[in-house]
């Protein structure tokens, strides 16, 4: 599914090297978690995978389903199935949530050469999923994320995931800003999306989220590369012992 091979990347026009030969392979159907201290390069990895401006790839390659991702624009990567759940979802003033999502879904479909989804079908799907996530229907009419609480924004990210049905999901600090109830709703949503055709990468600072979304593998990222890997229990050990043992 997702193959990251010897990936290096810098920011600030090459002034600051963040990723240093990171390699990782996440097969379809698996959920991997990346943990690591502040400044290890966790968020940088999520932005490099999704093609944000300002992050220069200086070496290595990344493929999704065998296709080279790094030469694609962010929207092309999205159409190929790459989805990033943002640590801080953006507010989009003046663009109602439904308009935003319908535009996104149909742009992806067009890019894949598929037919657009008609309005009634889209609405039906959106209403059903919103109910699953215990979202108020009026939230869908409001401009995307504007005035939403931290928890509502994260729930909206999960809602978008369910609507867009990506093949690979990167979750950047999805648990930040969530109380326990919201965390459970979000985790339930993510667990429902687990499927043999879909891969997931969960980037997190704390082990807490992994009690709810149990990963197949856990990796430690420090100084821009993976320095250790283990199974789900490894995360508990990391939480207890800290990252010092893995400092570069």
């Amino acid at each position: 599914m997702l193959k990251i091979n010897n990936l290096s990347a810098s920011v600030d026009d090459g002034q600051k090297q963040i990723l240093n030969g990171l390699s990782l392979e996440i097969p379809a159907g698996e959920v991997h978690a990346i943990m690591g201290p502040n400044g290890a390069g966790k968020s940088t990895l999520s932005y490099v995978l999704t093609g944000r401006d300002g992050y220069d790839v200086t070496g290595g390659d990344v493929t999704l389903g065998g296709e080279d991702l790094l030469d694609m624009d962010p929207e092309q990567r999205a159409a190929k199935g790459m989805f990033l759940s943002f640590q801080y979802p953006l507010e989009i003033p003046g663009v109602p949530t439904m308009t935003f999502l319908k535009t996104a879904l149909n742009a992806q479909r067009r890019a894949r050469g598929e037919d657009e989804m008609a309005a009634p079908e889209f609405l039906k799907k959106a209403r059903a999923l919103a109910a699953d996530l215990k979202m108020k229907p009026e939230m869908l009419k409001r401009p995307l994320n504007v005035g939403f609480s931290g928890g509502e924004k994260k729930r909206m990210e999960i809602f978008q995931m369910m609507m867009l049905e990506p093949s690979f999901i990167v979750m950047d600090e999805t648990d930040s800003g969530l109380d326990v109830d919201a965390l459970r709703i979000v985790a339930d949503g993510v667990n429902k999306l687990r499927s043999p055709d879909r891969g997931m990468l969960i980037i997190t600072h704390y082990q807490r989220l992994l009690d709810y979304i149990v990963p197949d593998k856990v990796h430690v990222l420090t100084s821009g590369k993976i320095v250790a890997s283990g199974d789900a229990d490894f995360a508990k050990k990391l939480e207890k012992e800290g990252y010092d043992a893995y400092a570069a």
Partner: peptide, 12 residues
């Protein structure tokens, strides 16, 4: 905001 929209598949 533009990157967020692109990430969801909306062309720039």
């Amino acid at each position: 905001a533009l990157f967020y929209m692109q990430q969801r598949g909306i062309p720039i």
